[in-house]
């Protein structure tokens, strides 16, 4: 079994992610990063969802690893994790979903995983499994700067991005330190609060992103609370991209009530609208 997808031999996972941002800059468009839960409603559908998201114009994708106690997540993603775990999803099946999708899509895929799961598996083993699954990076929402050295070193050695988060409550000097450490991109959390679609962009977001822009060269993606194309367009004007989670995961909750083709078409349409808001088609 090969551990690098066709066409990317010799490049590190991080380099593949960086190449996507470089191509976007050259094309004058911003990145769209949808978030979908691995294994909701089932592994086969997850692979198909990732393919649909890729076809519809996603630049990269965050694959949410279900966790039993996600304190940073609002009700939509929590429920999605609960459904996935109830259907018997394990870390093995998450890596298998990523592996199957990585062979079929062009967009890089990152895992969003609680540090509880990474620590339990063993940091080195988790990193090796992530690379073998074709993942390009990790987003670890419950791992602040002070605790992240243990994961940082193996990620650097493996060429895996370790995306850090800054939030509205992060003081400026700390935000700079976090930005310096972040690889792949910097995740700018738009609001103080949990994940979940919101109707309005928070006050001060645009200024915060502009300020961050003066402090770091790493791409800045904005997430939490972005629900539709209008917000995506507004954010894309100042940031390098947008992350949309709950608004798409909400569609996964409807999986039981409609045929799979219809589910994939709905998700594809939603991603397509968001991608169109991010600039010329990729």
């Amino acid at each position: 079994m090969t551990t690098t997808p066709a066409g990317s031999a010799g490049r590190s996972p991080l380099a593949r992610l960086e190449a996507v941002f470089a191509a976007h800059r050259a094309a004058g468009r911003k990145a769209l990063a949808p978030f979908v839960t691995a294994g909701d409603p089932d592994p086969a559908t997850s692979v198909a969802v990732l393919e649909a998201v890729d076809r519809a114009g996603a630049s990269l994708c965050e694959l949410g690893v279900p966790y039993s106690d996600p304190i940073a997540d609002g009700p939509v993603i929590q429920s999605s994790y609960t459904r996935a775990l109830a259907s018997g999803i394990t870390l093995e099946s998450v890596f298998s979903i990523a592996r199957q999708a990585a062979d079929r899509v062009t967009m890089p895929i990152l895992a969003m995983a609680s540090y509880s799961l990474i620590f339990r598996r063993g940091i080195d083993r988790f990193v090796a499994d992530a690379v073998a699954a074709g993942l390009t990076g990790l987003v670890v929402p419950d791992l602040p700067l002070e605790e992240s050295d243990d994961l940082d070193a193996p990620c650097r050695a493996a060429g895996l991005a370790l995306v850090r988060l800054v939030t509205p409550t992060t003081p400026p000097d700390r935000a700079e330190a976090i930005a310096r450490k972040s690889t792949g991109f910097l995740y700018c959390v738009s609001v103080a609060g949990v994940t979940g679609a919101r109707t309005e962009l928070p006050a001060g977001l645009v200024d915060r992103v502009k300020w961050l822009r003066t402090k770091t060269d790493v791409p800045i993606l904005v997430g939490f609370g972005i629900s539709g194309p209008a917000q995506a367009r507004a954010v894309a004007e100042v940031a390098d991209g947008v992350i949309v989670g709950s608004a798409l995961v909400r569609l996964l909750a409807e999986a039981g009530q409609k045929p799979r083709d219809r589910l994939l078409a709905d998700i594809g349409a939603a991603v397509g609208d968001l991608a169109a808001a991010c600039g010329p088609r990729k």
């Binding site: 419950d142 602040p144 605790e147 988060l165 509205p168 992060t170 959390v189």
Partner: peptide
């Protein structure tokens, strides 16, 4: 100073809570 009791303890929380 990092809240460690031997190897236990620490602070594994979302960044939003760090300042508080």
């Amino acid at each position: 100073t990092l809240g460690r009791f031997g190897r236990f303890g620490g602070r594994y929380v979302p960044e939003t809570l760090s300042a508080a």
